[in-house]
């Protein structure tokens, strides 16, 4: 079960690195968010199953519903459909993503062994997800795809947290989740403002307002 989820997460990474159309990428990163939240349920051995379920449910709500909704709304406001002429091509990005997968396995292999109760793939997949997200932020120009890269990083780091540290206080996990949700909220709002000002507003008149 857990291994299947982890393989799914890696496949989503690669497809996002090769993704051109924004609507499809939003759906895929939502699927990844759901997979990561369920992964937490499978892997965690916390003493409070109630809190765990609550956090997982909140994770599903944020990553599966709220974030895609915000991103779709921003996409409509900004009237962008796809990334055209990315700084690094889609095929090239996917190939680099595969290389990062190798790097992640090497790095994870050199760290002290994770808890034997956890799937051994967890840590390398966490690293590769984080690195793929960072890569996406760097190689895309469209703001929405950069936000998706940031979300992939969050997913990867969340998984690394499960794999490496047992018992992160629920207050901190809650804070991290809220921060991620707020980050997407703020980012999509800024995208909305940017598209409005850059498209429909006379720049000379606006420059006079500057303090």
């Amino acid at each position: 079960m857990a291994d299947a989820l982890l393989v799914l997460i890696v496949l989503v990474n690669l497809s996002l690195l090769g993704g051109r159309r924004i609507a499809g990428c939003i759906g895929r990163v939502a699927v990844q968010g759901l997979a990561v939240s369920v992964c937490a349920l499978v892997a965690e051995r916390a003493p409070h199953p109630g809190r765990l379920l609550l956090l997982a449910a909140l994770g599903v709500a944020v990553k599966g519903l709220l974030v895609p909704w915000l991103l779709r709304r921003a996409m409509k406001t900004a009237e962008v459909v796809e990334e055209t002429r990315p700084p690094v091509g889609f095929t090239a990005s996917t190939v680099i993503g595969l290389a990062l997968l190798g790097v992640a396995f090497v790095v994870a292999g050199r760290l002290p062994a994770v808890d034997p109760g956890l799937p051994p793939l967890m840590l390398p997949v966490a690293f590769t997800t984080m690195l793929s997200g960072l890569l996406l932020v760097i190689v895309r120009k469209t703001a929405l795809l950069q936000v998706i890269g940031y979300l992939m990083m969050e997913n990867g780091i969340f998984m690394a947290g499960i794999a490496l540290v047992s018992g992160i206080p629920w207050l901190v996990e809650l804070g991290v989740l809220l921060d991620a949700a707020t980050a997407v909220l703020v980012m999509s709002a800024v995208i909305g403002h940017i598209s409005r000002v850059f498209d429909h507003v006379d720049m000379d008149r606006l420059r006079n307002l500057q303090g």
Binding site: A183, V190, I194, V197, M203, L206, R207, Q210
Partner: peptide, 17 residues
């Protein structure tokens, strides 16, 4: 970007990302 102008919105985006 209290003043919603081009320069400050660009700066806001760079900052937040």
């Amino acid at each position: 970007c209290l003043h919603r102008d081009k320069g400050s919105l660009e700066a806001t985006w760079k900052y937040i990302l």
